[in-house]
């Protein structure tokens, strides 16, 4: 008898949670009607252009005249042309600044504070640190162009502390322009990452730290074995957001350096814009666009894998 009761399909409790008559024709029609407007908008202005991008990427086309089939030539160009490779490399160098600085600093602050920022101080902190998220990236670009200008605050500070020889026009410097752009991105993303990590660390049970201390853990151990694993999800979020911001950057570069000097700060986003609308190489621009999309996807996938799945 008992056998019989336990052999009741275990599927039941889960399938019970299924909505009523979800399979029914009426519900299906309703579902389509509810989803349709969003899907049409999405299809018209994302999916269709994406398909067109893919199609263009096999063409040689100046955007006006006749287009001719070009095979994989555009892709081969993207992956072999030295300038284009440098441009893609620039984007990955930006990842270093956009991602590393906010995450490392955010972790430092979070593991130092390790509690909820309450009261007036917390409110002020949140407000200030989120300001860069609220303003247009373009405004951040202009603000920092001014910071990095020859008479800007950066040089002013360097001179004040006796490092006049370091002063330079940062954004016009072949070596320093890209790091300078990276700093702008780091500045924009710093507050968001810090707040995410501080919020994340308050969710770690404080008794874990006490238990670790009783087990003889040093501060480094606490960080390594409690803080880092506990913040895995938040770190994943920070990395995802910042990596996308770096690889798909456009606004900041467009405003602060226009990709110069030379192509030292040109990023794929800017190059797509130039190729398509200034150089009239729609095919090549589209191939670069597809490559950029794929690069973002394969950069994000492992982060998502490491930070979410194991939960």
């Amino acid at each position: 008898m008992t056998d019989k009761t336990t052999s009741i399909p275990d599927a039941l409790p889960t399938s019970k949670r299924l909505p009523p008559s979800r399979g029914s024709r009426k519900t299906r029609t309703a579902a389509w009607l509810f989803v349709a407007p969003a899907f049409i908008a999405y299809a018209a202005f994302v999916l269709a252009p994406l398909v067109m991008s893919f199609y263009y990427s096999f063409l040689r086309w100046d955007g006006i005249g006749e287009a001719s089939f070009h095979g994989l030539t555009n892709y081969i160009t993207v992956l072999t042309d030295r300038d284009l490779l440098q441009i893609i490399g620039n984007a990955f160098q930006l990842v270093l600044y956009f991602t590393l600085i906010p995450v490392v600093l955010g972790l430092a602050v979070a593991s130092a504070i390790r509690s909820h920022m309450a009261g007036r101080f917390g409110t002020i902190t949140r407000t200030v640190l989120f300001l860069p998220q609220v303003i247009p990236l373009v405004a951040a670009g202009i603000a920092w162009s001014w910071m990095f200008a020859s008479t800007g605050l950066v040089n002013q500070t360097l001179k004040a502390i006796g490092l006049s020889s370091w002063a330079r026009g940062w954004l016009g410097d072949f070596v320093w322009a890209l790091p300078a752009v990276g700093i702008i991105g780091a500045w924009v993303l710093l507050g968001l990452c810090t707040m995410l990590l501080v919020t994340g660390i308050t969710k770690i049970d404080p008794s874990l730290y006490e238990a670790a201390r009783l087990d003889g853990a040093r501060p480094w151990h606490e960080f390594r074995y409690i803080t880092l694993p506990g913040l895995r999800q938040e770190i994943g979020v920070c990395i995802t957001v910042t990596v996308i911001a770096a690889l798909a950057s456009f606004d900041i570069v467009y405003i602060s350096t226009q990709g110069g000097p030379g192509i030292t700060t040109t990023v794929p986003g800017l190059e797509i814009y130039r190729l398509a609308f200034a150089h009239r190489q729609v095919g090549l621009a589209s191939a670069l666009a597809i490559v950029l999309m794929v690069l973002v996807l394969i950069s994000i996938a492992p982060v998502q894998w490491f930070t979410r799945d194991k939960k």
Partner: peptide, 19 residues
């Protein structure tokens, strides 16, 4: 009946919440 015996499902079928 015990959980999983189908009693709730039967009720929901009467209500029209299950096909």
């Amino acid at each position: 009946g015990p959980s999983g015996c189908g009693k709730s499902t039967l009720l929901r079928m009467i209500a029209g919440l299950e096909d």
